[in-house]
Design a protein around this nucleic acid. Structure first.
Length: 386
DNA sequence: TCTGGGGTCCTAGGACCC
DNA sequence: TCTGGGGTCCTAGGACCC
């Protein structure tokens, strides 16, 4: 059976939601991202992109390029809610929907000929429904596999609908820059350019031995993609492998006391997210980025899984105690991995931890009800000026 | 232009067991 | 005293994606 994959990708998602909800922003350049001194752009509206503003660019540069834009931190909760509404729309078209992020998803539309004579009609119907019900535009790509569908959705942006049929694959790929290849980032692209490979067509025709010499095992996979071959299935459900939080400070931290306070806040946040998601984890990883941007991770695996902020914090502090602080700390992160599903009926804890868990859950409920600020530790209260 | 925060996957070395 | 190979788990770093 012929496989048909649709990739749906929202246009300038965060900025588009803001413009939809505030008419004063429509037609104006809008930049959503970190508004602090070290922020970066997360989404730029198309009006802002015309000035060269794009995702991952430092906010300071965005301000320089487009000073009259509206800069805002954005509202992640709102975007998550809208993403849920988009998913509900997609789910009505196929049971096989794989979200890639808040604003894009793959959909397997194979074998739906009895409903739609052409897969292009399904993509058009999805776009229309998103426009009519949510007042947002999406771009869609339709192709025999994920890689091509993703390239296709990008090709028509914004508000595009591009179909790549079997006999069009080679022509579609040939002239594309190799940077469009899934998994080829800055380093890989530089390496490829170094051996004279600039387009996907050139990669498809490249010498096997030379490719293998530079990319080892990956060479085969790269080449298959370059030829438009990709048999990865659309997988609706993924178990998470890790849950973590990290934060970059406006100014580098220097005291171990401040670092400890921050680790406590991060640990509690991670614990709460674990409980919400129903997971416990065994490996605690602390990530530190120093002022020089040198970044290290140190991890410790516990004998049994935990979902308690206190346990995560104690472990993080023990890890921290072994780290030398020769320079200021720019970023701190705490991540739990080695996850396992935690059903509330399965008590994998000693009774003492069980009590702590009950207390944590009680606090969770209060926060659910009254907001995140309702209850917090004395240590985490904002410092009062004297 | 000084570089976010959420992740996934891969590699490579070492410990440890049989 | 010197030397095996396979398997698994853990740790650290890095590339990459949105």
């Amino acid at each position: 059976m012929q496989r048909w994959i649709i990739h749906v990708d929202m246009d300038a998602f965060f900025a588009a939601v803001e413009q939809r909800d505030d008419p004063a922003l429509r037609g104006r350049p809008v930049v959503v991202g970190g508004v602090g001194p070290r922020g970066v752009v997360s989404t730029a509206s198309y009006e802002a992109r015309r000035f060269g503003v794009h995702s991952a660019m430092p906010m300071s540069e965005a301000r320089r390029l487009c000073p009259h834009a509206v800069f805002m931190p954005g509202d992640h909760r709102k975007y998550t809610r809208v993403a849920g509404e988009i998913r509900a729309i997609l789910a009505a078209f196929s049971p096989l929907v794989e979200p890639l992020s808040l604003d894009e998803a793959f959909l397997d539309a194979s074998g739906m000929e009895w409903l739609y004579k052409d897969p292009k009609d399904i993509a058009a119907a999805i776009k229309a429904k998103i426009r009519d019900e949510l007042a947002l535009t999406a771009s869609a790509g339709v192709a025999p596999n994920k890689f091509l569908a993703k390239l296709a959705s990008d090709w028509g942006k914004p508000d595009g609908l591009v179909v790549v049929r079997h006999d069009e694959i080679a022509a579609f790929l040939r002239a594309m820059p190799v940077s469009r290849l899934w998994g080829a980032g800055e380093k890989t692209v530089a390496l490829l350019k170094g051996i004279g490979i600039n387009t996907i067509g050139q990669l498809a025709d490249a010498d096997e031995v030379i490719l293998r010499r530079h990319f080892g095992q990956q060479a085969g996979e790269m080449r298959r993609l370059a030829r438009g071959e990709d048999d990865r299935p659309v997988v609706p459900e993924h178990e998470p492998k890790s849950i973590g939080n990290e934060v970059t400070f406006d100014e580098d931290l220097r005291s171990r006391d401040d670092i400890g306070t921050c680790l406590l806040a991060l640990s509690q946040k991670v614990g709460r997210r674990l409980r919400q998601a129903g997971y416990a984890g065994r490996t605690v990883t602390v990530k530190i980025r120093f002022g020089s941007f040198r970044t290290i991770t140190r991890s410790r695996t516990l004998g049994e899984a935990t979902l308690l902020g206190d346990t995560i914090y104690e472990t993080a502090q023990a890890i921290m105690a072994d780290i030398e602080l020769a320079e200021g700390v720019r970023l701190l992160g705490v991540t739990l991995s080695n996850l396992q599903v935690y059903g509330s009926q399965t008590s994998l804890f000693a009774t003492d931890d069980d009590k702590k868990l009950k207390a944590s859950v009680a606090v969770d409920h209060l926060k659910d009800k009254f907001g995140e600020g309702a209850i917090t530790r004395g240590r985490l209260m904002p410092k009062k000026e004297k």
